[in-house]
Write a protein that binds this DNA or RNA. Structure first.
Lengths: 224, 224
DNA sequence: CTCTGTCAAGAGCAGTGCTCTCGGTATGCG
DNA sequence: CGCATACCGAGAGCACTGCTCTTGACAGAG
């Protein structure tokens, strides 16, 4: 009962903080949030022990929001359409980032100065890449992937460790290529969100679609 | 004479600011810089009209430092060794980022809240990718690249526009792949610098080398 | 009905970016 | 050489920040 009021309060604080984040940017002001909430600044500390804790909560929410969007979008695609599932993941990441640029910056941009990611963010953070792993796993089981690459031992160990978590059956070659695609996906989105593409690509959408389609082919997913 | 003292002063401010950036992080304090310089805070404003202007100066320096490192490393490789030149670029970007993580974050991380990149940062920012363009251009002139890909028209236009700036002779297929490599390179480095690889890849060096080597092969640069 | 735990309010501290004014100094011109 | 101008650093001050601490009010439990 009293706990429910408390939960509502923290949710409201997070909602206002998210709104401030969207309009102002990364420098979130506790006092401004308190003002918008019609409360004095010290009252916020009843619910979040520090500003960093508030940010951590927002980061966790952002990870789960992104992960949820990706999982939902990928889940809506016909399971047999492996390339479609892959492209759904890629486009959902980009779309979510474009819709929530500041939250994207919060989780994939430069970390805030003194901040160290708490351990509990890890599962939320890995959710999206796990969905990608599912596609690679299914493609492996469907027998559509070819394993042409030879990886050096040290790199192979890293790829194998990642594969064990997200696509245990996949061979290392396609897995390494999928990992590269993942990096390229976020490289593209980060460049676009952070303005690195200005005066270079004015409408990045088609280029993004082409790049991700090329990645699907490079991984070895069936061309549709 | 008086101008030289002024130049020395601005250089000293920038040096101290860079040092603070390296130790503290992105939240650079003008007053702390002034303290370290043995001067009162308002004196800084004689040399930089605002904190953002100081940051802009540091950003510009960071771009030219990275661009210079990349150009120097690539220039030291035998011109005929196209893959070696490509790999030199990739590894120099990563090495520079690892050596100067906060400056990397300054230019490739989330932009500071109210900040808009001034126009004069563009040439400095494009220096590094221009070096990559040189490699692609030379590879094209050497006739080692194959143009297998068919790009959709809208994406082709973007790729062509970029190609006109950095590698005018290159066909769109390899150019698009090189662009993807560039994005993947910065995707990897950003993930590594920003801690996205923690608890996943503990020693990213070998994986990076393998990924970049794979990219060189994917672009079509001769395997060495 | 009292007691205890939770809550918001308010004052206050140390720090921030930035502005303005006030003396002092060096430069360049007549 | 003498003076006016431009520049420079110091200092005070404003509005803001995150955060701490104390105080008083209120609700639920015994």
């Amino acid at each position: 009962m009293r706990a429910r009021l408390r939960a509502e309060m923290t949710d409201e604080i997070k909602a206002i903080a998210r709104r401030h984040l969207a309009t102002e940017g990364a420098n979130l002001s506790l006092r401004a949030v308190a003002r918008d909430l019609g409360v004095v600044s010290s009252a916020i500390y009843r619910y979040f022990p520090s500003r960093d804790e508030l940010l951590t909560a927002l980061i966790l929410d952002a990870y789960t929001a992104l992960g949820g969007s990706v999982a939902a979008a990928e889940g809506a695609v016909d399971r047999a359409d492996l390339t479609g599932r892959f492209l759904a993941i890629c486009h959902t990441v980009r779309d979510w980032a474009l819709a929530n640029p500041h939250e994207y910056a919060l989780i994939y941009g430069s970390p805030v100065p003194g901040y160290v990611a708490p351990r509990d963010t890890v599962p939320a953070a890995t959710r999206a890449v796990t969905v990608l792993g599912g596609v690679i796993e299914d493609a492996t089981l469907a027998g559509v992937l070819r394993d042409d690459d030879r990886l050096p031992d040290d790199a192979a160990a890293d790829v194998a460790r990642i594969g064990a978590m997200i696509a245990p059956s996949a061979p290392l070659g396609p897995l390494s290529r999928a990992l590269g695609s993942w990096l390229q996906l976020f490289g593209f989105v980060s460049f676009e969100i952070f303005g690195q593409l200005h005066n270079t690509v004015d409408v990045p959408g088609p280029l993004f679609a082409q790049q991700m389609r090329a990645q699907a082919a490079y991984i070895g997913l069936p061309t549709t």
